[in-house]
Design a protein around this nucleic acid. Structure first.
Lengths: 201, 201
DNA sequence: GTCTATAACAGGATAGAC
DNA sequence: GTCTATCCTGTTATAGAC
């Protein structure tokens, strides 16, 4: 943990987050960020030395925040249905705040796969997968799910949660939605996803 | 339709497609493309005048091809299950050929939402949606589907088809997959998707 | 039609005044 | 700590020789 950041330092970081994750300007220059923050371009270099370092800082913070939240959802020993619900809530809420963060993670991780995305160490990961497998088996037995491998379940859940935000502008365009139409659509998604994943939802 | 393109002109376009959509180098410079094509940078300007015009051309062609294929799938009067299967096949096949095309479409359409993505005019779109609605109702009655709005069905299908490719590197990273592991995973996806969408699959 | 040379410019980074 | 001025580099684009 650092000592208290000055106001300007924090302002730059917050503005960068807004420009990158809210406005979706992936190519934003230091000038763009400086303009958005109402400060001088040189100040960015004063506090962060380079554009790359600022970007890395902002991106890393976003990842850390995401990891810690996912970790706390994953580690709770809840039934799969409730866990899934929490997971969906987390995704929707986060994407409302930072609509483009998902896209950033995807593109950044494409160009640099060394960025660590794993939210937990291998042993805990394996443990969680086993837990998930058992939970699925339980639901299958109860007639609430069809059999599915845990990896496929997770990717399915990620697909259903991510794409409506990744493809926001595509969806709006295809279905001629305005802002409200899209918001309404997203609101309905949670139930749609739960009904897809669980036969008794 | 144009007259026969010279070899170099075609080579440049093909190379650009490879660099953008196969290698995923979204920031590729004219120099990068020239190098990949084994030609001189000036030739790109000779044939396409500017980087932007080349990019637009390549991107537009990809969109046209996609639109025409989707159009032919959509317009076939097949039962929803078979249409869905064709749709999944198309997506998987295309993403195998051009792994990054999807990501390009998403990011490009974000920065320029005026890019036309609709695959058909409004009246045909409405007609298709009604058809889809009726098909869903039929399957619901037969006990093969849960009720779902056509818009949600389409977005669900797109989500399930797109994300495994958009998030390729994330998936590989989370599950410690190598190239074969990922390929195997993708192969299994079609069945997983069909089982999710249709109760009798 | 293809190459070399060079212009023109944008963006990142630094020095130094204040 | 913030600003202006300046440098440096990478990239696009064009002119002109061949």
């Amino acid at each position: 943990m650092e000592v208290l950041a000055t106001d300007t330092e924090q302002l730059i970081k917050d503005t960068a987050k807004k420009v990158f994750f809210v406005d979706g300007n992936i190519h934003a220059t230091t000038q763009d960020i400086a303009d958005a923050a109402g400060i001088n371009r040189a100040s960015i270099h004063y506090y962060y030395r380079s554009r790359k370092l600022l970007f890395d800082k902002v991106f890393e913070e976003a990842l850390i925040e995401m990891r810690s939240k996912l970790e706390s959802i994953a580690s709770a020993s809840l039934p799969i249905k409730e866990k899934t619900e929490k997971f969906i809530d987390f995704f929707i809420e986060r994407s409302m705040q930072h609509p483009y963060l998902e896209l950033f993670i995807v593109t950044e991780h494409n160009s640099d796969p060394s960025i660590p995305l794993k939210i937990m160490p291998k042993d805990r990961h394996d443990e969680q997968m086993k837990y998930l497998e058992a939970e699925i088996a339980r639901e299958v037995k109860a007639g609430n799910m069809k059999p599915i491998k845990p990896e496929h379940f997770i990717v399915t859940m990620m697909s259903l949660c991510s794409f409506p935000f990744l493809g926001k502008s595509i969806i709006e365009s295809i279905f001629d939605m305005d802002k409200e139409g899209y918001a309404k659509f997203i609101k309905e998604r949670k139930q749609v996803i739960m009904q897809l994943l669980f036969l008794d939802a």
